[in-house]
Design a protein around this nucleic acid. Structure first.
Length: 611
DNA sequence: GCCGTTTTCGGCCCGACTGTTTTCAGTCG
């Protein structure tokens, strides 16, 4: 499987970056695990709605998470009889998975769903709307799906319910907006593997000479609406006919001689366009967008007497080019602009003046400074994480487990932290001179009052301190800003983790005076994180750009909770590229010696890191 | 419903926050 490398932009990739590149068996049905995970998730919701035992509910939730983390196909595991080796899968759930693999349905699930209106349970995914509220709404307001919920809110019937005030109703409205937004757009981290899978299948069709994804996926936007795919074929109608028969295609919405529209597994709509070879670059440029970027470009062309469309660049009827993207930009007297920059945020002017940034690439990273292990809520042991870092070719890795306030994540109390330090020391001895350097760190909660979750004398003994907000997200702007500034002012803090605190489609960012935070971070030499978790991508592209322009240091972290997730750091890099980020200010592109000097910038820290 | 190097039964996810209360229920992580 071809990784999503950025080779077409002249960048190189040093290490394999997909789990599929790392000798793991390929899934033969990438959606099967997800389908079962969704059923278990739904089962948990149904049981919660019925007010069943919370531990039973948790078991289903845990199983769903566990399945999503799986690299192998469930059908393969079931075949081998190893289902119960999956964490969180016992006798009963294994049986249910087997049944699903065989029959594509689970009788027990259907039994539990009986009598519950379709469309009711999914409402529980609305932030702020839990099982109790939903049960109440269902009983007292006849809410049975999204429409009836909306009606109940608009008619004002909710305010008559016990415990329902104006604020609660406003919150529910906000939750619905978030949910709708999250529903319409898919996370980049979900869409990219689907695109990858589709391209791989398209390229296997003999009549397809080339296939690429364009659109917002190619620009690496954090969420994706639909997918645009381009192909070259000598026989477009027949190639498209074969394309819509691929197993990943669930529904054919349109099929013509040069274009097909389909719905693929995962519920995403795909436009497949077949283009003549001489127009391919122009088409790739055109369908990559963004719209604003293209409008600006075409305007520029017109000033020079050129017409630009998806078939090429023309003067009158004379075709000047369009075979590849370089030609298109070249005819406008500018170098190729990386897809991530094409948002009309000044990149065209920068290209004309030859001051485009030299964008960071995955291959520039020399380590990961934000990871979790089994000491807190990670899935992989300390040693497994270090070993995977070695496979990625990293010079260093920081293991930054949670602090005690993060109870749900089994944050480390002082005893456990002591144990972790000892284990790291043992591992360092065992590994000798082999890379990577192992840094003992913590992701330390910034408590509601701005204090940190470990005392200073403990922080002083850590090699890397990532400080982050994990609670009291709704504090007013002044209070939240003061809280974060307090954390930055602590001399032991190195990185401000996921500064915005948002989760895509699920939680709004915190209210923060970002400029003041950047200024304080610069003064203190603290790096701002670009968190690579596909659910966070935080800083945003715009914030990252502003931070770099102001002179701030940055760190790109995977926030990995398992070894495969370490590879997701690429999403942080994509986000950085969208923010015009160059390698220079990103501390984890630095060689270890330089990173070490930075980490040891405060006298209290100088003794700490053993190398 | 899962899990087990004290347990095959009895633990497991409990504290913070919000909004609504006047002592607490629901939701979230």
């Amino acid at each position: 499987m071809e990784a999503w490398k950025l080779a077409r932009d002249g960048a190189s990739v040093r290490a394999p970056l997909l789990a599929s590149d790392l000798h793991l068996p390929m899934k033969n049905n990438p959606m099967l695990n997800e389908e079962v995970a969704r059923i278990f998730e739904n089962m948990a919701r149904v049981l919660a709605f019925k007010g069943q035992d919370r531990f039973r509910i948790m078991a289903y939730e845990r199983a769903a998470v566990s399945l999503r983390d799986l690299e192998e196909d469930l059908a393969v595991i079931a075949e081998a009889g190893h289902l119960q080796e999956i964490p969180g899968i016992g006798h009963d759930l294994a049986e249910m998975i087997e049944e699903y693999v065989k029959t594509r349905s689970i009788r027990r699930y259907q039994r539990e769903c009986r009598g519950i209106p379709e469309g009711l349970i999914e409402l529980m995914a609305i932030p702020g709307l839990g099982p109790k509220t939903l049960a109440l709404l269902s009983k007292r307001c006849r809410v049975k799906d999204f429409d009836s919920l909306k009606q109940a809110i608009d008619k004002g019937t909710l305010s008559r319910l016990p415990g329902f005030g104006q604020k609660k109703i406003d919150n529910l409205r906000r939750g619905i907006d978030l949910w709708l937004g999250g529903k319409q757009r898919m996370l980049l981290g979900v869409a990219m593997p689907l695109a990858e899978d589709l391209l791989e299948n398209l390229r296997k069709i003999r009549l397809v000479e080339r296939a690429d994804v364009a659109g917002s996926i190619r620009r690496r936007r954090e969420t994706i609406g639909d997918m645009d795919v381009l192909i070259i074929s000598r026989d477009s109608p027949r190639a498209l006919e074969q394309a819509v028969k691929l197993p990943v295609v669930k529904q054919v919405l349109a099929l013509g001689d040069t274009r097909a529209t389909v719905m693929i597994e995962g519920g995403i709509q795909v436009d497949i366009r077949s283009m003549p070879e001489e127009s391919y670059g122009a088409a790739l440029q055109y369908f990559t967008g963004s719209k604003q970027h293209n409008v600006h470009l075409r305007l520029l062309g017109r000033e020079r007497g050129l017409k630009i469309n998806e078939y090429g660049v023309f003067r009158g009827n004379k075709r000047l080019g369009g075979k590849d993207e370089n030609e298109v930009y070249g005819l406008l007297k500018m170098p190729l602009i990386a897809p991530e920059l094409r948002e009309d945020r000044g990149e065209i002017e920068a290209a004309l003046e030859e001051r485009l940034p030299k964008l960071i690439d995955v291959g520039d990273l020399k380590g990961d400074l934000h990871t979790h292990t089994t000491f807190s809520d990670g899935k992989a042991t300390l040693e497994e994480m270090v070993e995977h870092a070695a496979e990625l070719g990293y010079e260093y890795i920081a293991l930054t487990d949670h602090s005690p306030s993060e109870r749900i994540a089994r944050g480390l109390d002082l005893d456990r932290l002591e144990q972790k330090m000892e284990e790291i020391e043992r591992l360092r001895k065992k590994r000798g001179n082999r890379k990577p350097h192992i840094l003992c760190g913590a992701e330390v909660d910034i408590l509601a009052d701005g204090k940190l979750d470990y005392p200073d004398e403990i922080l002083a003994r850590l090699d890397v301190v990532v400080a982050a907000v994990h609670s009291a997200f709704r504090q007013a702007r002044d209070r939240m800003t003061g809280r974060v500034l307090d954390a930055i002012a602590n001399q032991h803090v190195d990185i401000l983790g996921h500064p915005g605190g948002r989760q895509l489609g699920a939680r709004e960012p915190v209210e923060l005076d970002f400029e003041r935070v950047v200024a304080a971070a610069i003064k203190a030499g603290v790096a701002l994180e670009i968190n690579g978790s596909m659910y966070r991508l935080d800083l945003t592209d715009v914030q990252a750009k502003a931070a770099q322009a102001a002179g701030a240091l940055l760190a790109i972290g995977s926030d990995a909770h398992s070894t495969p997730q370490m590879d997701q750091i690429r999403f942080g890099v994509y986000q950085a590229r969208r923010g015009w980020i160059e390698p220079r200010p990103v501390v984890n592109t630095w060689p270890f010696a330089r990173l070490h000097r930075w980490l040891a910038r405060h006298a209290t820290r100088r003794h700490a890191i053993s190398a």
